[in-house]
């Protein structure tokens, strides 16, 4: 690895809050993906007889839900979908946005204008509205949610990377390469994207955080992962109907989990931004 990468790594490790955020993410992933291996629960069949149990009752450390699922086990299952969708959609959005923005910024001229008007259009239509309409047309599954959320979220990274690409396209090493007959694929693939990597990586972490929040909103609006699957947002909005019954254990754990994971990804993003020595880019 290059020494530049080394020093980014070192600067990141000096960022205490960022390292803590990374630890939180690692623990949450372990909880959601390894947890079920050690803590078996039935998250498919409902059990009305064991519904709405308070924490500690009948060996349910966090109680049970309104249809009798073990809350702790459900937190693992729901977290899996939230993290899967958030991570995959965030990365998908960053990937599309990076390529789109790099090409637009490098090409300039009419191609840039066309590509950026498309981005403007996408940004103008609020994602939540588009998701609601989409939700009435297609039946959501984890895969569908990844694609849909990814497709509505690539616009901001596209804008950021385009701005970066515009400046990088005029760097002397790109000019020299062009003078030698280097093509645009090489310019974008070898020079522009690698040098915009800081912006891309930092933005990716923010994208993942936003995607996880967006999943929660989508679930709240009733378009989340279908039963018996769930995600943290779905658990939360389900629990909210029981607010006045005092069933706090259906609300607090998923709520805290969402806040924790989004907070952690943002802190990591901040630490990475410092580590890459980037300046603020519209966020």
């Amino acid at each position: 690895m290059s020494t530049a990468t080394d020093s980014v790594y070192r600067r990141f490790l000096r960022h205490r809050l960022g390292v803590a955020g990374l630890a939180v993410i690692v623990l949450l992933f372990a909880f959601c993906f390894l947890g079920p291996v050690f803590y078996h629960t039935n998250q498919v069949e409902t059990n009305i007889l064991a519904a709405n149990l308070a924490p500690g009752v009948q060996g349910h450390p966090l109680g049970t839900t309104d249809v009798g699922f073990d809350e702790l086990g459900r937190l693992m299952v729901g977290g899996r979908s939230s993290l899967e969708i958030g991570l995959a959609a965030g990365l998908l959005a960053t990937g599309i946005g990076t390529i789109w923005g790099a090409v637009a910024g490098y090409a300039g001229g009419w191609l840039d204008a066309v590509m950026m008007r498309i981005v403007d259009t996408g940004i103008a239509i609020p994602a939540l509205f588009l998701l609601l309409v989409a939700g009435t047309i297609v039946r959501p599954t984890v895969g569908v949610l990844i694609v849909v959320i990814g497709v509505v979220s690539w616009l901001v990274p596209a804008r950021l990377v385009r701005a970066e690409s515009l400046t990088l396209a005029n760097r002397e090493y790109v000019l020299t390469m062009k003078a030698l007959g280097g093509g645009s694929t090489r310019a974008i693939g070898r020079h522009i994207v690698p040098n915009a990597i800081g912006t891309v990586v930092v933005n990716a972490t923010f994208q993942v955080a936003d995607a996880i929040l967006l999943v929660a909103y989508v679930s709240f609006l009733g378009l989340g992962v279908p039963f018996p699957g769930t995600d943290w947002g779905g658990m939360l909005s389900n629990g909210i109907s029981y607010t006045y019954d005092g069933y706090w254990w259906m609300i607090v754990p998923p709520g805290v989990a969402i806040i924790l994971v989004v907070f952690a990804f943002n802190v990591i993003g901040d630490a990475l931004r410092d580590a890459f020595e980037l300046r603020l880019e519209g966020r």
């Binding site: 955080a209 709520g255 969402i258």
Partner: peptide, 24 residues
């Protein structure tokens, strides 16, 4: 650090969850 963290927690809280807490 304190205010930045609070702001970030505010950002990370889903609006409907926040509304619930405020109402309660």
């Amino acid at each position: 650090h304190v205010t930045s963290s609070l702001a970030l927690i505010g950002y990370a809280t889903p609006t409907f969850f926040l509304a619930l807490v405020l109402v309660i």
